[in-house]
Every structure is written in C-alpha cells, then in structure tokens.
Simulated scan of single mutants.
Amino acid sequence: MLKDKRLRIVIGHYGSGKTEFSVNYAVKLAKMGKKVALVDLDIVNLYFRSREKSNILEEMGIRVIGSSVKGAAVDIPAISSEVLMPLQDKSYEGIIDVGGDPVGARVLGMYYQYFIPEEYDMFFVLNANRPETQTVEKAIEYLRKIEDAARVKVTGIINNTHMLKSTTIEDVLRGQELAEKLSQEANLPIKYISAIESVAKELPKDLEGEIFPMTLYMREEWMV
C-alpha cells in the first residue's frame, strides 16, 4: 500500500465494491499512522456512499469530505470546496471514491489538472459477478469510458469479485481469471485481490496482486 502514489482514485461499476474498498484502504492507512483524507465524489448513487460512515471514520482519525450540504435527510449533488484540500496539501494520503459510471466520473474530470502521473494512482475495481463487466470486452469498454469522462488514466486493477458475506474462494479465483485477461488486454497490473477476511486468508499466496483482507464497513449487521 505504501508503494502506491499519494492520491488513490477508486473507480468501478455499481456493485463492484469500490466504496467498501475505499473505506478499507483509508482505515488501513490510518492504522499505519498516516494522515488520511477520504473524498466522496459520488453524487450519482444514493446508497452505500463512504460519507455515510463519517462518524466511524472520523473517530479513526480519517477526514471525510463529501457534500457541501449537511443533513442526514438531504440528498443534493453538491460538492464541497474542501475536495481541493487533499489534492493540494501533500501532507495527506488521499483516497477518492468516484461515482460508479462515466457520468459520475465526469465529476473527477473537474479536477484532472491536479492529477499528475507522479502523484496519483487510479484503480479500476472489477467484480466479475456484475453483468456489465463480466467479460474482458465489457470491462475494458467500461474502463475506457470512465477514463474518457474523468480525463485521468487507470494505473491498476483490483479484483474484488464478491457475493458480499456469501463470497467463496471460487468466486475470487474466477474473478482473478478475468482480471488477468483484462490486465493483459489493457496492459495494466493487478494491484490488489480484495475479499472478506475469512476468504482472503484462504487464497493462494502466488496470485498476481497483493491480497487485501476487508471488513464490511458499508454493510449493517442485519444485511445479508
């Protein structure tokens, strides 16, 4: 993780698990003693947004930046000017959770001038169980559309093939096959293989990419 660039942009289709990965990434950095800001740029999706966990994350020392309109019952696509803070302040490790389609990625395009190659990574979160990204052709088409909208290039792939709490080793390994094909087609490295902790510890150690155990912060206990 510490070899990644200072700014980490996380993109992926709805249901890919990009927000869960973003939150887990921020938590892991905070536990390493890093100064962390998590920017929620998702103004399209109404559910499972990282800013919904602001209280928990801020207790861990993570600065959460989301809508400029405060209020639990208010949902307006308003972006806080604080977004610029981690982009400009190099004392922060920044994680940027972007809306899950090319429309959502246009928001990131507003800030493209801040993303110089030496300072950012953009990770494409791949879930082989999503119909829209379950083939190489579909996945690379989706990836390129997001790049075009965001005006920023993807630098790595995350295999996050899951079925939430029902995820199996077989799910992850099937997703890894797709990730490897996408890696070859797009000439991008597989950076992480993320999975719930019970599955992550059972995965083979020789897979391409770093195994990334995750806690389901975005799922309430009563959710399946």
Rank of each mutant, 00 (worst) to 15 (best):
L84G: 09
S68Y: 03
P131N: 10
E137D: 14
K34W: 03
S80G: 09
I146F: 08
H13D: 13
K18N: 05
K35A: 08
V98P: 02
I9P: 09
G17P: 00
P117K: 06
L57I: 03
E202K: 14
L173S: 03
K90T: 13
L178W: 00
I96Y: 08
Y217W: 10
F212Y: 15
D89I: 07
I158M: 03
T215M: 11
P77Q: 05
S198R: 15
V27H: 08
A186C: 05
K3G: 09
E147I: 10
M32T: 09
E177R: 15
M214C: 12
K28I: 02
F21N: 04
E202D: 14
T19H: 00
G94L: 09
I43L: 14
I62N: 00
H162N: 14
F124I: 10
Y25D: 12
D148E: 15
D40G: 08
L57V: 10
G156K: 01
V83Y: 07
S81D: 15
K3V: 10
V172P: 01
W222F: 12
Q113V: 12
K35M: 09
L126A: 01
S68Q: 12
V98K: 09
V27D: 05
I196W: 08
V74N: 11
Y111E: 07
V125W: 06
V98D: 07
D121C: 01
S67H: 09
Y14E: 12
K3L: 06
P204V: 04
Y192M: 08
I11A: 05
P86G: 07
K34C: 11
V199A: 09
L57F: 09
N187K: 15
I193S: 06
G12A: 10
E119R: 11
L126I: 14
I65S: 02
Y111S: 05
L41N: 01
E119D: 14
E208C: 04
R106T: 15
A179K: 09
M85R: 15
G100E: 02
G175F: 08
Y92N: 01
R6P: 06
D4C: 13
E210F: 05
Q184Y: 07
N24A: 08
L57C: 06
E141K: 14
F212S: 08
K181T: 06
V199Y: 04
K18A: 10
K90D: 14
S198N: 14
I62D: 00
R8I: 15
I146H: 04
A179H: 03
G12I: 06
D97G: 03
K3S: 12
R63Q: 13
Q176K: 13
M60G: 04
M122A: 11
D75W: 13
R219N: 11
L41T: 01
K53A: 13
L2H: 11
S81H: 15
V154M: 07
A200M: 07
E210T: 13
M32C: 11
K35G: 05
I157G: 07
L126T: 08
R51G: 04
A149N: 02
M218Q: 07
V107P: 07
T161N: 04
